[in-house]
Design a protein around this nucleic acid. Structure first.
Lengths: 232, 232
DNA sequence: TAGTGGTCTAGACCACTTC
DNA sequence: AAGTGGTCTAGACCACTAA
């Protein structure tokens, strides 16, 4: 007896849960169902929009609305190279900034050719005076690229984006692995035989349809836990 | 010149990107903005619904619509204990099924007391005849719990849910860590000194407001990469 | 051609915030 | 009391799917 469209959503959810409607089933036409609920088609469609959004049903124009088959594999993960660390950061220190030639991996991740040049920025994050994260940022070399300065100035990419009004126009992908770090990484993180989390991140500009940055975060396993949960 | 509400969405996105509207800004009232676009308030509200959904604006009833400050930390992650593995599974072998007493960790994760009993099911996943994943499933002990059989029968939880019509009524949380496995895990995975991914998973029943299961997946680092990306 | 969902309108009433 | 967003209606026209 609350809001109509919510009541309808709940009712349809229940019908799905109780097996009255099965995954794959075709629902009644909108007009018909609106009548049987005693609401306007507009209101019913608002309910359907919610159900689609939450993954309960899907629509094929000209055909009808169908009950989804459940997947339940989709999780939401929050990741920020600074805030996700378990401990409080003392310092993010800049190691070096250098123009490098691309190897195969970088050419792939930054979508560049062998003649392009890349700016590499390396940082180490300290926590209780111990190095726990080794960050490598690769940027396509462009004369006077303002992002380079920002990468040096700001600790995390989030702050860079906020400062730059690139805001909504970017897409990021990450992949999470365990790796045995090479000597370089081991030296900077003062590790012996431990394995580390490697989170590689690609940042796309939707506007220019190019890759803004490829980053690698090597994180001491003890200092990070990633948490994720399914939505609704 | 396409669909009206999409054009409006694009226009507002552009205004945000070009700084014409800034994060935190209050937008014109809906009625007013509908007039200036020359559309009905209903259509304008459809545009706003999309912008809210994609994280561009948010609404405070009685006050107005505001431009969001960007976060860009939210990723979507797909996880399934079987399908995410890099290699093809030969076999999922059942090690044992046992009623165990809860330790502190289990009491927390399953929200049980010290007198409750827990069913523990352990499995090993093989790939090219090598063990690569060690699975431990903990279920609250209930007489004739049908899930126990399903856990034994099905390889992954997804299939169990599909078989059980619990479908949409569950919520899952995972946390991802690197751990140095104990002797037990090391034995089953035939490991020496390697570290492993530990993915712990809690499965909630929204219906009964209880925890259906607590699972641990120990996965050989070489055989899994988790991928996630920001939405939109 | 008939049926389906997709878009859009103009107007009504409500609850909430602000003054 | 005035202004805001939240809900809801009844009806119109369109594009697509299917027989």
């Amino acid at each position: 007896m609350g809001v109509l469209y919510v009541d309808i959503v709940d009712d349809i959810k229940n019908k799905i849960l109780n097996g009255v409607i099965q995954p794959g089933d075709l629902l009644q036409p909108e007009t018909e169902m609106a009548n049987s609920y005693g609401v306007s088609r507009t209101t019913l469609r608002k309910s359907f929009a919610l159900l689609v959004n939450e993954g309960y049903i899907y629509t094929i124009p000209g055909k009808g609305n169908y009950v989804c088959k459940p997947t339940g594999k989709q999780y939401e993960l929050q990741f920020d190279e600074i805030e996700n660390l378990k401990c409080k950061i003392d310092e993010v220190s800049l190691l070096d900034v250098k123009v490098v030639e691309p190897n195969k991996k970088l050419m792939t991740h930054l979508m560049l050719g062998p003649l392009d040049r890349i700016i590499r920025i390396r940082k180490v994050t300290y926590c209780n005076k111990k190095p726990i994260e080794f960050i490598v940022v690769y940027l396509p070399y462009e004369k006077g690229n303002p992002i380079v300065e920002d990468v040096i100035k700001f600790a995390n990419f989030h702050d860079i984006m906020e400062s730059n009004r690139l805001h909504f126009q970017i897409k990021k992908k990450i992949s999470i692995e365990i790796v045995k770090p090479n000597d370089e990484v081991r030296k900077h993180l003062k590790l012996n035989e431990e394995y580390v989390f490697l989170i590689s991140q690609q940042i796309y500009s939707l506007e220019k349809n190019s890759i803004l940055s490829y980053n690698e975060f090597y994180i001491h396993g003890e200092h990070i836990t990633l948490n994720a949960e399914t939505k609704i």
